[in-house]
Write a protein that binds this DNA or RNA. Structure first.
Lengths: 231, 231
DNA sequence: TGGGCTAATATGTCTGCACATAATAACCGC
DNA sequence: GCGGTTATTATGTGCAGACATATTAGCCCA
């Protein structure tokens, strides 16, 4: 019931004109100056509205060329990448986790190359099982570059999982995430307490701090897990 | 090699201070005014930089309370939701598709309620198979509200898939996406030419135009599909 | 005709100022 | 003390004007 005001009102009106085909996909829309005159506001205000829409993928803007309605509305969805503990707690469940193994090992070639490391370098290999209400929720397989840990691993891993401790301690500048699906291996099935071959939702994350690789982690979520977002 | 200038330089400097723990997670950072004085620029410029960082989840801002470094760096990843055809073509493969079935039917209760429709309303039910280089790539199961189609379905469905025609014709204002994993049903396995029970990557999308539901679609991607993004 | 220089133009960003808004802190009367 | 009102404060947004920059269109000359 609240009519937006200011730049949000302009964004809404522009969206409406696009939706109602007043401005067709691919068409050039008036300049910021013209729109500012029409709406009776400053150009900066129009700029703010159009910039947001360009960011959302609705408009395409180029200097001198002007602003046009995106031909292929590649909508951009933003999704939050929360820490596992908060994800569980946010569902109103009790979070806990168990460190299954912690070793130093030479990673498989695929892992080393994904991290841009020389083959043969040793990494920390951690495997953790996360629980929601004492039920297995997530199986985590992590390779960690010890070089980025100034003082080794934290003393107590009671409250916080490795991941949570990592994000608070080692700031990353660049990350890379992919989502996919995979059938549960016998091991994974046993850990997550599902039938072997069950479809798992897989998240793989690689993070760097500048040039130095930090970690590569594979998260296998049990059945029923959904990643959710809005556009 | 290019030192950023203007508000991007400020964003970079703020990020640096956070990464290097000059400003610890949870700590309050100086006000816009103070930072503007320090950097020798206008407050609006600082505002722009801090706003971007808040949008990215690095900072948390509240009026009067000030700006603090996010305690739990819930990084926000943005992912593009492209049209299937472009997704395939973008991989350098040849795109094609086949409409398997097109019927009018009363949807299951779950579908009707997700769309906010009265049970018993009839919808269009479309099932489509999409190919990449003549190999099955994606199985699409779509329920479509005929009320939003002013002139029925398009005449030729040769070039463009239903989805692509939809996004160009019926603009949506609100959407809802979820990703999950599921084992292939016998039908899906047959269509996608995989073993029954294979892990499929599932995307479910619901879209509305204002209050009116447009479509609910379930996309089942064959093995090997990855959704990819960066932070 | 064609290639390269130049001018025109729309967007990108900055400044300095103003007022609006939300949320906290201070205050005051009981 | 305590609860409720008021003042203060940091951010949110607006305006008008200016300059920067990318890109196009047109011009001129070989």
């Amino acid at each position: 019931m609240s009519a937006p005001q200011g730049w949000e009102a302009i964004r809404a009106e522009v969206l409406r004109r696009i939706d109602s085909r007043v401005w067709a996909p691919g068409a050039l829309i008036p300049t910021e100056e013209d729109l500012a005159a029409e709406f009776g506001c400053a150009r900066a205000t129009v700029n703010r509205a159009l910039r947001e829409l360009a960011l959302a993928g609705v408009l395409e803007r180029r200097r001198k060329a002007g602003t046009r309605v995106a031909t292929h509305p590649v909508r951009k969805a933003t999704l939050d990448i929360p820490v596992t503990r908060l994800e569980v707690v946010g569902r109103g469940q009790v979070y806990s986790f168990r460190l299954l193994a912690q070793t130093k090992a030479v990673p498989p070639l695929a892992v080393a190359s994904r991290l841009g490391l020389a083959p043969g370098a040793t990494l920390l290999h951690l495997r953790t099982l996360h629980f929601a209400d004492a039920k297995p929720f997530l199986y985590e397989d992590r390779w960690l570059n010890p070089a980025v840990l100034p003082e080794g691993l934290p003393p107590d891993l009671a409250e916080m999982s490795i991941n949570e401790w990592l994000v608070k301690t080692v700031a990353y500048t660049y990350g890379d995430i992919s989502f996919s699906a995979a059938n549960a291996s016998p091991d994974e099935a046993a850990y997550l307490d599902v039938a072997p071959g069950a479809a798992l939702f897989i998240t793989e994350r690689t993070t760097w701090a500048g040039e130095a690789p930090i970690t590569l982690v594979r998260l296998a979520y049990g059945p029923g897990y959904r990643l959710h977002t809005q556009v």
